[in-house]
């Protein structure tokens, strides 16, 4: 590993370095819930994954984990390059790039998610999870739980199938953040398995969305109640 980079991270207060990244993760997930362009949502997902990977990298360097560079490179290739590329490709195929109709109006959903985040930040430190688990930072704990719930919110309130898939990935990023926070990083095999799962998921669901578009001429899940041959 690059010695100067390690020294840089160790010299500086790693908590303050990762606190910027935690802020980015939180902001990007709330902006995502109020975003109507699917392309922008995919970019935001890539940014969110990148910040989480950097947090994991910093935590690994601080805890002297020798494999951290390999693991983070693999996750970077999967989450920041392959999955966004696949989703962008599907987007180009189905030729729908914005979502206007949702169950909850987009600014309202942004405000609701903001309230949700504030509530979680108020509640989580008081129920004493971080005393039971040995967490990296309790700010990251609250952030990861908010990100999981925001992902769930996106899946619940959006009508387009592709956006629901992105919501699923946001939820997965939240779980990823939770694992970084509680056990620093997963065993390599588990990490690979999850990544492979997500990649195959992106491919299968991409094909699935494309087929829905082919036979129903829409990817609106409300239209999927009729049977078509």
């Amino acid at each position: 590993m690059n010695v100067t980079l390690t020294q840089f991270i160790l010299d500086h207060n790693h908590e303050s370095l990762s606190s910027y990244l935690v802020g980015v993760v939180l902001l990007v997930s709330i902006l995502m819930s109020g975003c109507h362009r699917i392309e922008t949502m995919i970019r935001f997902f890539a940014i969110q994954s990148l910040s989480l990977i950097l947090i994991m990298f910093i935590a690994g360097v601080v805890n002297h984990n020798p494999h951290i560079l390999i693991i983070s490179t693999i996750i970077f290739v999967g989450k920041c390059i392959l999955i966004p590329t696949i989703l962008m490709f599907v987007l180009k195929q189905i030729q729908i790039n914005r979502e206007i109709e949702t169950y909850v109006a987009l600014p309202v959903s942004m405000l609701l998610n903001c309230t949700l985040t504030a509530l979680i930040f108020a509640i989580i430190p008081n129920i004493g999870i971080e005393k039971e688990l040995h967490v990296l930072s309790s700010g990251l704990l609250s952030t990861s739980i908010s990100v999981i719930l925001i992902g769930l919110f996106i899946m619940m309130t959006r009508k387009k199938a592709l956006v629901q898939i992105i919501g699923l990935y946001v939820m997965e990023n939240g779980i990823f953040a939770l694992t970084i926070d509680t056990i620093f990083e997963m065993p390599n095999v588990v990490e690979m398995g999850i990544l492979l799962d997500l990649l195959i998921g992106a491919l299968v669901m991409g094909v699935w969305v494309y087929r829905i578009r082919q036979s129903f001429e829409t990817i609106n899940v409300e239209e999927l109640t009729k049977l078509r041959g």
Partner: peptide
Amino acid sequence: TSFIMSIIALVISVYKGKGLG
């Protein structure tokens, strides 16, 4: 959007000293 950024800033600033650094 700007309002939400300031709410997040407020949340983080109230959270000061509890581990977000």
